[in-house]
Simulated assay, not measured.
Amino acid sequence: MGEQDGTRTCPGCGAAGVLPGQLVCRVCYVPFALVPPPMEAAHASMAADRDPGRDPAPMASDRAAEADTRVIDRPSLTLDAPGKVAPPHALALRFSGGQTIALTRDEQVRLGREPRLCPRAGFLTGHSDLSRLHATVAVDAEGTATVTDEDSTNGTFVDGRRLAPRSTAVLRPGSTLRLAADVTVLVLP
């Protein structure tokens, strides 16, 4: 199997059996559009395209575009089901005091000032304007994150809008969550 039968190797990980037209490597999941072609193939294609009557400027821009197309970093991925790729965590909550709580799929965390009700958020104990159980952040099996106000006294705010008591809002990376007046939480991917 190889170049003779139309297959080739992945330029990212070297796995054999890449078929013509295949968009993603089946081993490392790197999109082939992000991996630059091997240098000898790139030079051969440029030499074949040379035409004495053609303006050389487009070829220079082609070379610049090829130089700028490269894989900078591959994310670490885990398989949670055959053929399904999932990140190691679904989201992270970064609090104004510098603390971070990471959540995975099918997980929830309670936020409030009572450590027995909110064991992962014990650092919120000193915030007297928070309710004992203020809000719950949950991530479902598909990775959708939500926040639910737990009938708090001083309110739960998502991107500046107050949630009605016992209501739920979707959280996205970059959203800002505010609990009462002084606890600000940034939602990170």
Rank of each mutant, 00 (worst) to 15 (best):
V30L: 15
P31M: 03
F32W: 10
F32R: 06
L34S: 13
V35H: 02
P36Q: 01
P36W: 02
P37S: 05
P37M: 01
P38I: 03
M39D: 09
A42I: 00
A42S: 06
A42N: 05
A44Y: 02
S45G: 03
A47K: 12
A47R: 12
A47D: 07
A48I: 00
D49Q: 08
R50V: 13
D51S: 15
D51W: 08
G53R: 06
G53H: 02
D55V: 01
P56C: 13
P56T: 09
P56S: 09
A57G: 15
A57K: 07
P58I: 10
P58F: 11
P58R: 13
M59N: 03
M59H: 13
M59A: 15
A60L: 14
S61V: 02
S61D: 06
S61W: 07
S61H: 09
D62L: 14
D62V: 13
D62R: 15
A64G: 06
A65H: 13
A65Q: 14
E66I: 10
E66F: 02
A67G: 08
D68R: 15
T69Y: 01
R70V: 12
R70W: 11
V71E: 05
V71G: 06
I72H: 09
R74D: 00
P75R: 12
P75L: 15
D80M: 11
P82C: 02
K84F: 04
K84S: 07
V85I: 15
V85L: 15
P87S: 08
P87Y: 05
P87E: 05
A92S: 15
L93K: 02
L93G: 05
R94W: 00
R94M: 05
F95M: 03
S96L: 05
G97L: 04
G97I: 03
G98S: 11
T100R: 15
T100A: 12
